[in-house]
C-alpha cells in the first residue's frame, strides 16, 4: 500500500522512473536501467515514486529475460543457419518487445497522474 500523500518531488521521480523504464526498453538500453536504479535509490518505500521505480525495474528485468533468454534459446535449439529459426526469432522478438513497450507506456501515463498501474481495490 502506497502513501496517499504525494508531493511534487515524488510525482516527478515517479514519472522519471517510468520514463527511464521506457528508454531502457527502446533508445537507451542499460543506460536507462542505470538511471532507473539511481531513481530507485532516492526513493522511500510506500511512496508512489518507489512503487514506479520498482515496477519499472520489474518490467525491464522480466523483459530482458523473456526477450534475451528466450531468443538465445531459440537460436541455440533451432540453429543459427536455419531460416526457420529467424522466422520465429524476429516475429517473437518484435511482438513481445512491442508488448513490453505498450505496458511501459501505460505505466508512464499512470505515473503522470500519480496512480499505480492498477487502482487499489
Amino acid at each position: 500500500m502506497t502513501n496517499k500523500f504525494q508531493n511534487q518531488q515524488q510525482l516527478k521521480n515517479a514519472s522519471n522512473a517510468a520514463l527511464a523504464s521506457i528508454l531502457n526498453l527502446t533508445l537507451l538500453p542499460v543506460i536507462g536501467f542505470i538511471a532507473l536504479y539511481s531513481i530507485y535509490k532516492k526513493t522511500k518505500p510506500h511512496n508512489i515514486d518507489h512503487y514506479h521505480a520498482v515496477l519499472g525495474m520489474k518490467i525491464n528485468i522480466i523483459a530482458a529475460i523473456v526477450l534475451l533468454l528466450v531468443t538465445a534459446l531459440m537460436i541455440l535449439l533451432g540453429g543459427f543457419d536455419s531460416p526457420w529459426t529467424w522466422v520465429y526469432v524476429i516475429s517473437y522478438f518484435t511482438i513481445v518487445h512491442t508488448t513490453f513497450i505498450m505496458i511501459a507506456l501505460w505505466v508512464l501515463v499512470r505515473s503522470w497522474s500519480g496512480d499505480k498501474l492498477f487502482n487499489d481495490a
Binding site: P83, W84, W86, V87
Partner: peptide, 18 residues
C-alpha cells in the same frame, strides 16, 4: 501481419541471404 512477416523472413533468407 505475422504470417506475412514469417513469409517475408523466409523469403529473404532463401531468395536473397542464403
Amino acid at each position: 501481419t505475422l504470417f506475412l512477416t514469417g513469409a517475408g523472413i523466409l523469403q529473404v533468407y532463401l531468395q536473397r541471404y542464403s
